[in-house]
Computed example of a mutant assay.
Amino acid sequence: MKMALGFLTAILITCFAPVAYASDPSPLQDFCVAVNDSVAAVFVNGKICKNPNMVVANDFFFSGLNMPGNTSNPLGSRVTTVNVNQLPGLNTLGISLVRIDYASYGLNPPHTHPRATEILVVLEGTLYVGFVTSNPADPNQKNKLFAKYLNPGDAFVFPEGLIHFQFNVGHKNAIAFAGLSSQNPGVITIANAVFGSDPPINQAVLTKAFQVEKKVIDYLEAQFRWNIV
C-alpha cells in the first residue's frame, strides 16, 4: 500500500512539475521592486528586492508608450520594451509589455522569447503574423506554420519559445501592443543570432547547416553586423 501511494505521489509530482515551472515563480509577498543590477551585491535568477519601506509609486510607473518608435532601420520596425529593466515594479509579477511600431512593409523578424508566451493586439494597420512549430517527431513531416492577417482589434498568440514574426503588409504605418508572460521574456532574433554573433560561428558549421557555399555565408554575415533593438 505504501509503495502504491509513493508511486502515485511520484506520478502526480511528475505531472504537475512542468506546470509549476512553466512561467516565472509566483510572488510570496505583495511586491518585490527590483534593485538595479549595477548596485546589486549579488547576482540572482531575477532581481533583488528593494527595501519595501523605500518603495514609491514611480517604481510601478512607466511613461512613453504613446510615443512612436523610430522605424528608420533596415527592418522598418521598432520594439519599445517595458519589462523589469524599465519598470522595476514588475519584478516577480510574471508579466511585461511591448509596443511595436512598423513602417510601411516593416518587419519584426523571426525571433523567439525563451521565457514567455506572447499575445499581440493590433491597434493600427494590417499585419501578417505567424509562428512555426518545433521539429515534429516524424522526420517525414515539416514544421507547421500558423499564420493570419490581423486588422485593428485583432489578437494573436505566440506560444512560448516558438519562432514567430509580424509583417506590415499595408502602405501605412502600423502599431501593435503585446503582453508577455514573464517579467523578462528575453528575445533571440534568429538571423542576427546566427549570422551576427560575436565571435562569429565557424563558417563550416553554417555552410553545412544551410547547404550553401561560403560566399553566401559571407554575404549574409555582412548584413547582420548591426544590432536589432
Rank of each mutant, 00 (worst) to 15 (best):
200 P>K: 08
117 T>I: 07
26 S>N: 13
196 G>D: 09
67 M>I: 15
120 L>A: 03
111 H>G: 05
21 Y>A: 03
120 L>H: 00
146 F>Y: 14
165 F>P: 08
107 L>S: 06
61 F>A: 04
69 G>V: 09
162 L>Y: 07
28 L>M: 07
136 P>T: 00
36 N>A: 15
18 P>C: 03
131 F>K: 05
77 S>V: 03
18 P>K: 01
56 V>L: 12
26 S>E: 03
69 G>P: 13
169 V>L: 00
104 S>E: 03
191 A>N: 12
72 S>H: 14
151 N>Q: 12
37 D>K: 15
189 T>R: 05
142 K>W: 05
205 V>A: 00
221 E>A: 12
123 L>T: 15
226 W>C: 00
49 C>L: 04
183 Q>A: 13
145 L>R: 00
47 K>I: 01
123 L>S: 15
77 S>E: 04
33 V>S: 09
145 L>K: 11
16 F>K: 02
121 V>S: 08
193 A>M: 06
167 F>C: 02
193 A>L: 08
117 T>A: 10
67 M>F: 13
202 N>D: 15
139 P>V: 09
156 F>T: 03
227 N>W: 10
132 V>S: 06
98 V>D: 04
128 Y>S: 00
125 G>P: 11
163 I>T: 14
3 M>A: 14
159 P>I: 07
76 G>T: 08
41 A>M: 12
151 N>Y: 12
60 F>T: 02
132 V>G: 04
140 N>V: 01
104 S>Y: 09
119 I>A: 06
86 Q>M: 02
167 F>G: 02
43 F>T: 15
54 M>G: 00
210 F>H: 15
67 M>C: 08
103 A>V: 00
96 S>K: 06
110 P>L: 05
58 N>M: 08
190 I>T: 14
216 V>S: 10
116 A>I: 02
228 I>A: 07
83 N>Q: 00
180 L>S: 06
2 K>F: 14
153 G>R: 12
163 I>L: 13
229 V>T: 11
136 P>I: 01
108 N>R: 01
104 S>F: 02
156 F>G: 05
47 K>G: 03
172 K>I: 04
111 H>L: 03
172 K>M: 00
216 V>C: 09
161 G>H: 12
22 A>C: 02
30 D>K: 15
171 H>A: 11
106 G>K: 11
90 L>R: 12
127 L>I: 12
57 A>N: 10
215 K>A: 14
149 Y>S: 06
148 K>T: 07
175 I>Y: 10
208 K>T: 14
39 V>G: 04
31 F>L: 03
220 L>C: 11
128 Y>C: 01
118 E>I: 09
97 L>R: 14
83 N>S: 03
201 I>P: 09
55 V>L: 01
26 S>P: 10
63 S>G: 13
80 T>H: 13
70 N>D: 14
108 N>A: 05
50 K>W: 00
24 D>R: 00
18 P>D: 04
226 W>D: 01
161 G>L: 05
31 F>H: 15
134 S>V: 05
218 D>R: 06
217 I>Y: 10
10 A>C: 15
16 F>T: 06
200 P>A: 09
53 N>W: 10
155 A>I: 04
189 T>H: 12
46 G>V: 07
186 G>R: 06
147 A>D: 07
